[in-house]
Write a protein that binds this DNA or RNA. Structure first.
Length: 640
RNA sequence: UGCAGAAUGGCGUGGACUUGGUAACACACUUCCCUCAUAAGGAAGGAUAUGUCGGUUCAAAUCCGACUUCUGCAACCA
């Protein structure tokens, strides 16, 4: 059978730092759509990745003393691991430093140049000499450099430009004729009124002021500036070839069915990108969806406000599916949403623990209690059953409808309506009364069957949003009937089978306790990172700077003017040094004597309360005490 | 400053907004029912809700105008 194809992409993440929960929202949203499409019979290709070039990265890596490549390798890895942690099912993770991407982008650039859509010109901007950076008028802060606040001067640099104006009218026509193209619709007017109507300016597409980028093949002073590099990923990742020798993936999946992006970069995706494709003679994507932003409490997340939330922290406290649920269900369709720990806990308790978790739990328990887990055929039907069954049978179409419009939150609502109805059904049928004597057993079996099957329906539909939870429910039901088509009839659970073991899906959370816990773990992390500010890896080169040697404490005395300090004479090789250590609370001078220890030998000498200290003796902090880091290696050995 | 969008009960979200006429949903709250279940479930209920002012109209959340506040964008920020 020939499945219909579906190609979905997210924006590629910029590798300048760790993505926060707002960035993770996009991939989770895309994942739920991709999973849903797969479930409902589409041949899906889901691509995400990282955007790794640019001046910012070049600068940042330089500050850290790393090569840009090493730097982006690390960040890309971190991003990928967060995407994996969120249980996202991308088919390809593209990096703009991939060889294939680079080569194709170079070809695209050359092609556009040769056909006259790219031309050489001059870019005028504000230049900050110490930072070696160009800035636009709007970037300047009070007319000064936004990085160092120093004076900037007008300067020109040679650059290539892309003739956007040439395709302007064609693009307006396309947008007008394809109302689905820009979503949500409110954004469409923004684009047309703000940019297209006033007339497009040609776009600067190369830079000479930095070199961490894809070189222009025919003019090696230039690197290709972000737009052509980053946006092309959507086709280079499929194996697009400007010469026409496309790979199978491209032939099969292009054009994209939806580019899922943040509303902030909508302009690039609805103006620059379509024009690029027009210039290349490639079909345009069917839809660009600019999703809203996730805010933490009031206002945008920012490091300076200290309100940044990270996906991995949230997952460690609440679990993947709870976080996924919140992102997918609580985010409004077109308005910015908010996330706080309190709101998250509220949703987990009321929706996931009470309505979903409790329903599964009570049903499985009753199944065990009354029939030893055995599933019996529903033979004694009553009118009241129909309402539940009809709702179950009609829900899949409703969910599909909502998902076709990318109304993820509404789709989840429909599933929960079924779960609520199932809870109500229990009250209506009072299975615990039926279980009291033999005469009710047949009816009880039917009630339980209907419940189990309704739960199975819910679970099949929940899978794209909460994959782990759905799997856990399937295990508890002990069913392997998980496909969408099984929702056409209300008979997926098989009589004669036995349900699995009940487990708590989502435990109720004590808000105060949890918040305290989170606060504590946050403080812990802050303490660890206090000195470094940010948790960063050091490289082997950094480590090489530290000279560790084995030394022997020959003599030790109390510091004359400090209670906490001990002053030791340490023999390292042939050299004898004086080292001051803050361990008087744990060791007496006598205990120090004779110990063979590891010393940081090249630490800058310092005077501590008048006593010179040349180095540092290493101790291990076990929480309430400092332990010697000892060795049997000979005095003077180098530790590495 | 210009352009666009938004403003609803204690919090949050949606709907009708193009087709003027009962404002919904979940959470929280109150009462009742139930005890299979995760102090969970079900039912009923209350509530000072359509930012402010004015206009059109028999009738406005809905149309028009002004104002206030917030958000985004304002072209090369990746």
């Amino acid at each position: 059978m020939n499945k219909e194809k579906y190609y979905i992409t997210t924006a590629i993440a910029y590798t300048s730092g760790k993505p926060h929960i707002g960035n993770s929202y996009e991939i989770v949203l895309a994942d739920s759509i991709a999973r849903f499409k797969r479930l409902t019979g589409y041949d899906v290709f889901f691509m995400t990745g990282t955007d790794e070039h640019g001046q910012k990265i070049q600068q940042k890596s330089k500050e850290l003393g790393k090569s840009p490549q090493v730097f982006v390798d690390e960040i890309a890895q971190e991003i990928k691991s967060i995407w994996d942690l969120m249980n996202t099912s991308y088919d390809k993770f593209i990096r703009t430093t991939d060889k294939e991407h680079i080569e194709t982008v170079q070809k695209i650039f050359k092609k556009l140049y040769e056909q006259g859509d790219i031309y050489k010109g001059e870019y005028e901007g504000w230049y900050c000499t110490p930072c070696e950076s160009f800035f636009s008028e709007s970037q300047l802060i009070e007319g000064k450099c936004p990085d160092c606040s120093r004076e900037v001067k007008k300067a020109k640099e040679e650059a290539y430009f892309f003739r956007l104006s040439k395709y302007q009218d064609k693009l307006i026509a396309y947008i007008e004729n394809n109302p689905e193209f820009i979503q949500p619709e409110s954004r469409k007017n923004e684009m047309i009124n703000n940019f297209l109507k006033p007339g497009l300016q040609d776009l600067c597409v190369s830079r000479t002021s930095f070199d961490w980028g894809i070189p222009v093949t025919f003019d090696d002073k230039h690197v290709i500036y972000v737009w052509i590099d980053a946006l092309s990923n959507y086709i280079t990742g499929l194996g697009y070839d400007p010469d026409g020798n496309h790979k199978e993936l491209f032939k099969k999946y292009w054009p994209a069915d939806v580019h899922l992006i943040g509303k902030d970069i909508l302009r690039f995706h609805t103006i620059y990108w379509p024009i690029m494709l027009m210039a290349l003679g490639v079909e345009l994507p069917k839809q660009v969806f600019g999703h809203p932003w996730l805010l933490v409490g009031e206002g945008k997340m920012s490091k300076s406000k200290g309100n940044v939330l990270y996906a991995d922290d949230l997952v460690s406290h609440f679990g993947v599916d709870a976080v996924r649920y919140y992102l997918l269900h609580e985010m409004p369709f077109a308005q910015d949403g908010t996330l706080t720990h309190e709101l998250l806990i509220e949703r987990i308790n009321s929706d996931l623990a009470n309505i979903l978790g409790n329903l599964v739990n009570r049903t499985i328990t009753m199944s065990q209690k009354y029939f030893d887990g055995k599933i019996l055929a529903p033979v004694l039907k009553e009118a009241i059953d129909d309402e539940l069954i009809q709702l179950a049978l009609s829900t899949p179409d409703k969910v599909k409808d909502k998902m076709d419009k990318l109304r993820v939150s509404d789709a989840i609502d429909d599933i929960f309506t079924l779960l609520r109805r199932s809870n109500k059904y229990i009250d209506e049928t009072t299975p615990w009364v039926l279980g009291k004597d033999e005469s009710g057993k047949e009816r009880l079996a039917t009630v339980l069957y209907n419940l189990l099957e309704s739960i199975r329906f819910s679970s099949v539909m929940l899978f794209p949003f909460m994959p782990e939870t759905a799997e856990s429910i399937f295990r508890q039901l002990n069913t392997s009937v998980k496909d969408w088509d099984s929702l056409k009839t209300f008979d997926g659970m098989k009589a004669g089978d036995t349900v699995g073991i009940g487990e708590i899906l989502f435990a109720r959370i004590d808000t105060e306790k949890k918040l305290k816990e989170i606060q504590e773990s946050k403080e812990k992390v802050n303490n660890v990172n206090d000195d470094k500010n940010e948790k960063e890896y050091i490289t082997i080169e950094d480590f090489d700077k530290i000279e560790l040697k084995v030394g022997e404490i020959l003599d030790c005395k109390k510091h004359p003017q400090a209670d906490k300090l001990l002053v030791s004479s340490v023999k390292i090789g042939d050299e004898i040094r004086q080292i001051v250590s803050g361990v008087a609370a744990y060791y007496t001078p006598e205990e120090m004597k004779g110990k063979r220890v590891i010393v940081v030998a090249n630490l800058k000498p310092i005077k501590l309360r008048g006593e010179e200290s040349k180095g540092m003796i290493l101790f291990a902090d076990n929480g309430d005490r400092l332990e010697f880091v000892t060795t049997s290696a000979p005095n003077g050995s180098i530790v590495k």
